[in-house]
Design a protein around this nucleic acid. Sequence first.
DNA 1: CAGTGAGCGAGCTTCCGCTTGACTT
Length: 687
Amino acid sequence: MPLLIVESPKKAKQIASYLGRDWTVKACFGHVRDLPATKADIPEKYRDQAWARLGINVDAGYTPLYVARAKTGVLTDLRAATKAAGGDVYLASDPDREGESIAWHLSVVLGLKDARRVTYQEVTKTAIQKAIQNPRPINLALVAAQESRRILDRLAGYGVSPLLWDAIGGPQSAGRVQSAALMLLAQREQSRLSFIPSAYWRVTARVGTTPPFNASVQAIRGLPLATAASFTAQGQLKEGLEVAQLDAQKAEGLRGYLEGREAEITSIEVSPITRRPPPPFTTSSLQQAAGARLHLGVETVTRAAQSLYEQGLVTYIRTDSPALSDEALQLARAAVAERFGEDALSPSPRQYATRNSNAQEAHEAIRPAGAFLAPEATGLNGDELALYTLIYTRTVASQMQDALGEKTTITLQAGVVTLGATGTRLTRRGFTALYDDDQKDEDDQALPALTVGQRAPLSGVKAEEKKSSAPARFSEGSFVQLMEKAGIGRPSTYASTLKTLLSRNYVAIRARKLHVTPLGLCVALYLLKQLPQLVDARFTAQMEQDLDAIANGELKRLDYLDRVWRDALKPAIAGAQRTSPRIKVPGREAVFEVRDGQVTLRTAEGAALLPVELLPEDLDERSIPALLAGTWKPGAKSTRRTEESPGRAPTAPAKRKGSTTPRKKRDSTASPRKKASTSGTPSRRKS
DNA sequence: CAGTGAGCGAGCTTCCGCTTGACTT
């Protein structure tokens, strides 16, 4: 009886039901071998080799040392099943680079000669049957590409992390993905800290038509009134821009000028609007939407989505493709027809393509699985119901008609002052009847029917001073999207990369936003100076191109690794400064100095160790003297945390435990600390 | 002579990516 091996047990069950009793279907649970992680993983005979710590014999052509992963039960099970199948084994791991590698490792571990590799794009009976009729050999060039990726990540990660242990202290870490991701956050934090807000004025008035509407001042004597967009991040007026700038006195003068004055409508412009439904979810867009709409963090979303997957309610949750299978398209369209009628359907089925060039598209979009149960019919509750509803409506809405409408822009003149008002109106709701993704514009309003030349008095004139705001911090969900857009990490690692940055104390979550800590800022800026290539997201983009060339046979694995390691990273690591770095605090006359994992703030007035909970944004004219005097208390500024959802709050207290600084090195022997930092965070949650 | 504590030195930390349960607090 032939044996088919897939990665996921859920998938194995599904496929077993398609293939019937003539087949055995087993899961290998992802990778079955890997480089040794710690010394304990290294086999006795290699333990005294100089390269054993890396698990890669660089001098022997970057030969990797592979060891079985902890799940011995899985391997013995697969070996027994292989024997029972008489070696008639089909390797059906995912159709991407990692999947090809898994197939190759399986073929080695199970001793398969002439391994039969099969792939399919969707899990349907016909697709599976077609796949097993067309087996092919393992693509060794693709395996070489994966192996190069693995080796590079190990060399970079295990090569650079010890640099941090020397320079900064503590069990710190660096890597191709986490360091580039940290840098993206640090850059945003820096641009926020150095941002200089600009003041501008907004003057509004009520126009006395029936019914009335609101208009805002656009220009005075034809000169546009300054807005937030008129200024640079340094608080300067953008070059070559001619605008009217008010101060309190002028604003009050303008208010008096307008109050009671008659305005005339000088133009009415109407333009049509078409809005298309957003594509079905991928891992990153689901995180973004669940964060924005349901206020759920990445870990909560991942856990709830995994549960939905295990219940057979949604498809695989780690995907970069928004594509729907033909079967799913039909089911989604049937759901539209049943709920809203045939007229609500888009004229033809909508298929969505990814815009992400790194996408491997081994799975389809995250969508309802099986019978497309309506949310009410699932029997779910809580976060899982909310998440399923989101996935269901987004998928079904993707097959609905566009929303149509019109945008009206009104211009009015009152003496020398020009005012404007906008209003949008939907003439056909289309998909928004089910899934409304409208971003509300504060100026948008319902406008009455108006004609050019019409006159009406202005009243209730208000002049408000506004300040331009710095670029916003990332939420957990938008951080995941940022990583995807930058091309770093994969759907299976977005959540764990964030978790790593949190557990290293490089990043903290406050009021549902990601903040880079002083330690994170120091690590990022240190790496930027010593190893700029590692913190650059383009390093990964270039790696992807080179891996493609290896997979195509155009580039040799050895040549590639020599180029990135022997000729670039290795000498850069050897030449890097290993003394405690001093980093200028952005936007302040002060420096951070970091040693033993602890950050010290140094100013002309003195120095102070920074408490772990202090964030760069807490540093100001009041807190700095308090820190130096030792009287600073946390929470003085950050008390206005948004606690709308008390049930599911805080990851914050759990986080700090595992990664406290090793001030007393003797007390923190390796094993208890490891335990605390790896299992501490999730296990505290349920109590 | 046995027990205690300070001080010293050795060993360890770490990557990315693929998959789920089995462990405690």
